[in-house]
Design a protein around this nucleic acid. Sequence first.
DNA 1: GTCTATAATGCGATAGAC
DNA 2: GTCTATCGCATTATAGAC
Lengths: 204, 204
Amino acid sequence: MVGSISTKDKILNTAIDLFSRSSFSAVSIRDITREVGIKESSLYYHFKNKDELLDCIFEIYREEIKKVCPPFEDLDYILTQTTPEQFLQQGLQKFKSYICDSPRMSKISRIVSSEQFSHPQARLIILNDLYEENIRFLEVVFAKFKDLGYIQDFPARLLAIEYQYPVFSMITQYLILQFEQQDTAELEKLLQEHVEFFFHKIKK
Amino acid sequence: MVGSISTKDKILNTAIDLFSRSSFSAVSIRDITREVGIKESSLYYHFKNKDELLDCIFEIYREEIKKVCPPFEDLDYILTQTTPEQFLQQGLQKFKSYICDSPRMSKISRIVSSEQFSHPQARLIILNDLYEENIRFLEVVFAKFKDLGYIQDFPARLLAIEYQYPVFSMITQYLILQFEQQDTAELEKLLQEHVEFFFHKIKK
DNA sequence: GTCTATAATGCGATAGAC
DNA sequence: GTCTATCGCATTATAGAC
């Protein structure tokens, strides 16, 4: 039925919510099914076991995080449409909003972070899908900025890292503040100032 | 007895080890006491309950992380002994070695990170003892650098954040690589390059 | 697709002997 | 300070009826 949410989705969304508010191992099947309004045994019709729930959640993260960077083939066109500073500013806003502004994605980000030392998959996601994918994309971007004569001559990978690593820390902090329902305005301002500071330092 | 390790310390060290390899809630009292070689009931002679173990671990982290920054009153003297770039380079090495090179402290850092959404204390530790304390210290450092005419005129807090936030991400990555027993040489080189890149951009 | 019933084990914690 | 014994309850997961 269009618009209605299947039991399977309800289970998954409830699991995401509960796991993100404590941890995978602290949440029981009973906790999840109580919230959904079904018996424990019914969950096993939809999911093989508790671990499969987490596997699904990790898979959602991997699928979603892929969407943050535009495909390389679109890059040249996009760069003709904006200034480099605008491009960076917009990219960062997009990155932040993908991870932090959707309640579902920010919950999943918390889960990945919490489970990084319990689940090898979570570590791979952080190292590869989050860190390396982003750095690789930005490396290409900064290489193009260099070719176009916008910026000074630094190794593109160093620029990518110096640009993106502060952002990872800001996101970490953002997820905690958001969880505590504290104000994030200062941090959002900081994100903008970061682009300004960074670009000002490397532009020609 | 001098040199011998008390049962209480053995319990605590075992808890640190096991919690850091999965998570607080995934490790049982039974797991810990089996490893120590005592019965479960004996643990309760030394610790009120399971939560008290975690409280002790968080307290150790707070005590240790305090030691990373030298006291403000020593700062002026230290700054006469080194160049600003040397000072930053040494400070970063100290920071990294405090957190990552002691097996105990790196385990505790992993625990704090894993429990950040399960335990409010862990969030406070990250936001206050780790982030804010460090930034506040560096803010003073960069303000002094400005007064001494070493660096260009940027807001000291912005400099502190731009300098330290990439380091937080590198430490995050370091803890994962270390846990996976992967090579960290590239990351250590990156830490040095970061100081060089950053200082080169802001020096007068 | 959801239910009842239940198995089999594990959990944190306590009482009281030595 | 460590032990044995035990309590009461929670846990994941399955079998089989409807």
